[in-house]
Simulated assay, not measured.
Amino acid sequence: MGQKVHPNGFRVGITKRWNSRWIANKETYGTWLVEDQLIKRFVRNSCHQAGVEKVQIERTNGQVKIFIFAARPGIIIGKKGSEIEKLNRALMNNFGDNISVDIREVKNVKTNAQLVAMNVAEQLEKRTYFRRAMNKAIESAVEDKCKGIKILLSGRLGGAEMARSEKQIFGSLPLGTLEVDIDYGFAEATTTYGQIGVKVWINKGYFRDKVEEI
């Protein structure tokens, strides 16, 4: 039997933070859980050109604070803050008045697994040959001194009649330990042949090495 676990679920609460941070009772838990998913989906759809890596939500004293981590925060903010005001108003109209938005810039874009997966998916949608898209992403990550990277594509690759999976691995990628900072990302490419799934794992090194550097 295959023993598979989601890479983020395996590490959340230990080496990774929760993306939704609040405490609820039985009456409000289900409502807030669904609302969080709707907010995240709304933000991703509204800011898809900004390269949104993740959306985190905090709820305290009736206030909802939304943290948007993006590769291109200037697109979300807009000229003189015009775009972020529109986003804030849209969120308030859909999810209530007690909402505030905080934009954070994502650094090291080439070694961010979610952004790499989104970039590969975008290349596939532009009809770039899948092996070329994978090689380009791996080369960029290696230039940025990542310890290891794996990219897995699944679907009708190259317009083949039968769906299949293809992966490329570079360097070291120990997935069974919590001592290593493993970043995971997933994206989907919508092509004329159907959906192609893109999964990316990136090894950012041992946590103990980062502590020693500090």
Rank of each mutant, 00 (worst) to 15 (best):
V34W: 02
V109I: 15
E85R: 14
I202K: 01
L178T: 11
K204M: 06
I23M: 13
A117P: 15
T190K: 11
H48S: 07
D144V: 03
D102C: 02
N112S: 15
G197D: 08
Q37H: 12
S20I: 02
S46I: 01
G197A: 14
Q56D: 13
F42C: 03
I196D: 01
G155C: 09
E166F: 09
K199T: 05
N108I: 00
G96E: 13
G205K: 05
I14N: 09
R156D: 07
R156C: 11
N93E: 15
W22D: 08
G30W: 08
N119F: 05
Q56T: 13
M162C: 09
R59A: 06
V198N: 05
T111W: 02
R208K: 13
G51M: 02
S140V: 08
N94H: 14
D181Q: 12
L157F: 03
G51C: 04
V211L: 15
S140G: 04
G171D: 14
E179N: 10
E125S: 10
N94M: 14
K40P: 05
N94G: 01
E85A: 14
A137M: 00
I169P: 01
K86N: 14
A121I: 06
P174T: 00
V101T: 14
N88Y: 00
V180T: 14
F130Y: 15
F95H: 02
T15N: 03
A24K: 10
I76V: 08
G194Y: 03
N135K: 14
Q114Y: 07
I138P: 05
V5A: 09
L38C: 04
E83R: 11
K26G: 01
V198G: 06
V198Y: 09
E125I: 05
V52E: 04
P7V: 10
E161G: 07
N25A: 05
V211F: 11
V142E: 11
G148E: 02
N203M: 04
Q56E: 15
I202F: 01
F95A: 00
D181G: 12
D144C: 06
G62N: 11
G96I: 10
A113V: 01
V200I: 00
D36R: 01
N25R: 06
N203K: 06
R17D: 15
K210L: 09
Y129D: 07
Q37E: 15
L124Y: 07
N119T: 15
K80R: 12
A121T: 08
A50T: 03
K40H: 05
K110N: 07
M162P: 06
I66M: 00
F95Q: 02
M162L: 15
E179L: 06
E35I: 13
E139A: 10
K204R: 15
Y29R: 10
E166G: 07
K210G: 07
A163V: 06
M1N: 10
R59W: 03
E35P: 08
E58K: 07
G62Y: 06
E212F: 13
M1E: 13
N93K: 13
